[in-house]
Design a protein around this nucleic acid. Structure first.
Lengths: 205, 186
DNA sequence: GCTTTAAAAAGTAACGT
DNA sequence: ACGTTACTTTCAAAAGC
């Protein structure tokens, strides 16, 4: 009786402490990633849902919290790549990706692949590129995606190539290295795609 | 039109068997040249055959896993070689241990580029996994046959999880007809 | 869940030259 | 800017942690 009561309090306290820990971790990572408060709120809601659905069993709180934040960024249209999330997380990328897939499946999140265009504003802003470059990059992404060049390619690499190509076309040139650095991809990836994106857009015009 | 089924190629066959005899892997490792055995790392002894090319994992219990062969025929040939090698070490091996194929990996080509984004939505996001940031292939789990297909933008695909070559053919037929009814082939 | 084996697909990354 | 090597994903079995 008394022991059971104490146990319930203990369990409740532990659960409450774990939830607070998860939410504070989401807050910490969200701040480090520089995403708006709305994303943290969506991530928190996802985490509570995961908790309600018992998805934490056999997984780390840290992992589920991180996966929820990654999913929330995507749902809110301001994606952070797994690599970027990993930089502020305390678990490895492979585990974040695996947990994200599990949570997305169990909560029926119906996540569509990230649209490369959602990366454009951030990349352009970090490179001090104009609105004109963003518009041109959008054209490049749409034209090349329409011609089937997007299948299988990483959204951030695709966006990076479009930003680089657009900066050339708009006479606001940035080097491949500068674009690669803000996008967290290699110069090789940009080099391998920007040319065909320009060709795709020229064909479409 | 080339039937995509004609492009199916078996890339790997995994099978298990057993000699019905316990083994002292430490001594087998000493006597069998080319054997890799590091019990700290993995409980099985690794023995590779050259013709056909394959790798056999031999366990203390006498059970053996063979992988890397390009056909069911090659699996039997590889294991025949392994059995004979063990017999040379004066280890008793049944005449014809039962060999069970556990998995067949095949590749094929649908002959058309694929719009994976459209296919992901067409097949239903809840039925597939497509995370191009992590892997370029779209993962599609079929009900019958029970196999997993990896679809690529090039139109090529990998089918794994099947236990017989027919599973891959059935899978390709199902995938082709599903994509056709969705109007996403070609 | 992990450890090991093999194999394909295509993309990306990290080396060295 | 090459080339090479290697990692990502899927699958199954084995014995043991």
């Amino acid at each position: 009786r008394l022991r059971k009561w104490q146990e319930r309090i203990r369990t409740k306290d532990a659960g409450e402490r774990n939830l607070q820990f998860a939410l504070s971790e989401i807050d910490r990572m969200a701040s480090a990633l520089g995403v708006p408060r709305s994303v943290r709120e969506v991530a928190s809601v996802l985490y509570r849902r995961a908790l309600d659905e018992d998805l934490i069993r056999g997984r780390s709180i840290e992992g589920v919290a991180t996966a929820c934040l990654y999913a929330a960024c995507r749902q809110e249209g301001i994606p952070r790549s797994l690599e970027e999330v990993t930089e502020v997380a305390r678990i490895e990328q492979k585990e974040i990706g695996r947990t994200y897939r599990y949570v997305a499946q169990e909560l029926s999140l119906a996540m569509e692949p990230t649209d490369p265009k959602e990366y454009l504003p951030r990349f352009a802003s970090e490179l001090d590129l104009s609105e004109e470059v963003i518009a041109k990059a959008r054209e490049l992404v749409d034209a090349s995606a329409e011609q089937g060049l997007l299948s299988g390619k990483s959204p951030s690499g695709f966006a990076a190539a479009a930003i680089y190509a657009a900066s050339l076309l708009c006479n606001e040139k940035k080097t491949q290295r500068e674009v690669a650095d803000v996008a967290n991809v290699t110069e090789v990836t940009i080099r391998n795609r920007y040319q065909e994106q320009i060709e795709a857009m020229d064909l479409g015009i | 039109m080339t039937d995509p089924k004609e492009t199916i190629n078996i890339e790997n066959v995994v099978a298990s068997t057993g000699i019905g005899q316990e083994l002292d892997l430490q001594s087998v490792a000493m006597d069998l040249e080319g054997a890799d055995y590091d019990p700290e790392q993995f409980p099985g002894l690794v023995y590779r055959t050259q013709n056909p090319k394959s790798a056999a994992l031999i366990f203390r219990s006498g059970k053996i896993v063979c992988t890397g062969a390009k056909s069911t025929e090659d699996v039997h040939e590889s294991l025949r070689i392994v059995f004979d090698k063990l017999r040379e070490l004066d280890i008793k091996v049944e005449d014809e241990p039962e060999i069970v194929v556990q998995n067949i990996v095949t590749s094929a080509d649908l002959g058309h580029q694929l719009n994976l984004n459209a296919i992901a939505i067409g097949l239903g996001l809840e039925n597939i996994e497509y995370e191009p940031e992590q892997f370029p292939g779209l993962v599609y789990r079929l009900d019958g046959p029970e196999v997993v297909a990896l679809l690529f933008g090039s139109g090529k695909l990998v089918i794994t999880g099947g236990k017989e070559p027919e599973d891959a053919e059935k899978a390709v037929d199902k995938i082709v007809s599903r994509l056709e009814e969705l109007g996403l082939l070609e």
